[in-house]
């Protein structure tokens, strides 16, 4: 078993003259919570899309879950979960129908689906909401359900694109507890966020500025290196040098 689940070398993506992602390299180990930080437009989303097999790199190489991102995108898709910043369940379907659908597209059998659905509902204390339309749930609940659905096929890696945007602090806290639990069970978490307090929860953090990875270390090491008391300060010191605006 290789302990490195995401490995990227000199990954680059250009759109015409514009280099969105500029020769980035990093490794992510199994079970890590890897924080992927950067100001808007720094290239986070583009980098993440390449890792998920949604877009091809212009140059460089990388592997996710042991598969090449250039050639084995379809295989990668079977082994990752993904939760986007937009709410990504269907509001007009019930909790159960959403679970069944996502279990279905990941090819889970009927009995597996039933068992996982049961587990999710119990874990989230949702059993009574089984037949509620998702649209009627409060946002915090939706986000938690989203995360549970994104991991329904037990993926080795979960990509979370700003998962806690617009969620209240208490739900955010609960959400991070779910993330910890998943990481503890061996799932690698790759998460982008704007909240610097969340960055403190990560095992390691990379900060992107203008398409490059400027810093990559554990939160405590980063704070020491930048003589800062919080991740917020570290981020601001780095982001100050950014040339790309919002």
């Amino acid at each position: 078993m290789n302990d490195v689940v995401i490995s990227v070398t000199e990954l680059t993506k250009c759109f015409g003259d514009f280099t969105a992602v500029d020769h980035i390299s990093f490794d992510v180990k199994r079970g890590e919570i890897f924080g992927f930080l950067g100001a808007n437009g720094a290239g986070k989303t583009t980098a993440m899309r390449m890792l998920c097999g949604l877009s091809f790199p212009t140059s460089g190489s990388g592997s996710v879950a042991g598969f090449d991102i250039m050639t084995e995108g379809e295989k990668i898709k079977c082994h990752i979960g993904y939760m986007s910043q937009k709410f990504s369940l269907y509001n007009d379907l019930t909790v159960w129908e959403n679970i069944r659908f996502f279990a279905g597209i990941y090819g889970l059998s009927k009995s597996e689906t039933k068992e996982r659905a049961q587990r999710i509902l119990e874990q989230l204390h949702f059993t009574s909401e089984r037949n509620t339309l998702v649209g009627a749930l409060p946002l915090g609940w939706k986000q938690k359900l989203s995360f549970a659905v994104a991991t329904i096929h037990n993926p080795g890696i979960v990509f979370l694109d700003e998962p806690t945007g617009g969620v209240d602090p208490i739900t955010r806290r609960q959400f991070w507890e779910m993330i910890y639990e998943a990481a503890h069970a061996g799932t690698t978490i790759f998460v982008t966020t704007h909240y610097m307090d969340e960055a403190e929860y990560c095992s390691r953090v990379s900060i992107m500025v203008d398409g490059k990875v400027c810093a990559l270390d554990t939160p405590s090491q980063l704070k020491r290196a930048f003589a800062a008391t919080s991740m917020d300060e570290v981020f601001r010191q780095l982001a100050r040098g950014a040339k790309r605006g919002e």
Binding site: K77, Q85, F87
Partner: peptide, 14 residues
């Protein structure tokens, strides 16, 4: 528009 397309595209469904 809802953002669900992205989730579908990340799934193994072609």
């Amino acid at each position: 528009e809802m953002g669900t397309m992205e989730v579908l595209l990340v799934s193994p469904v072609r």
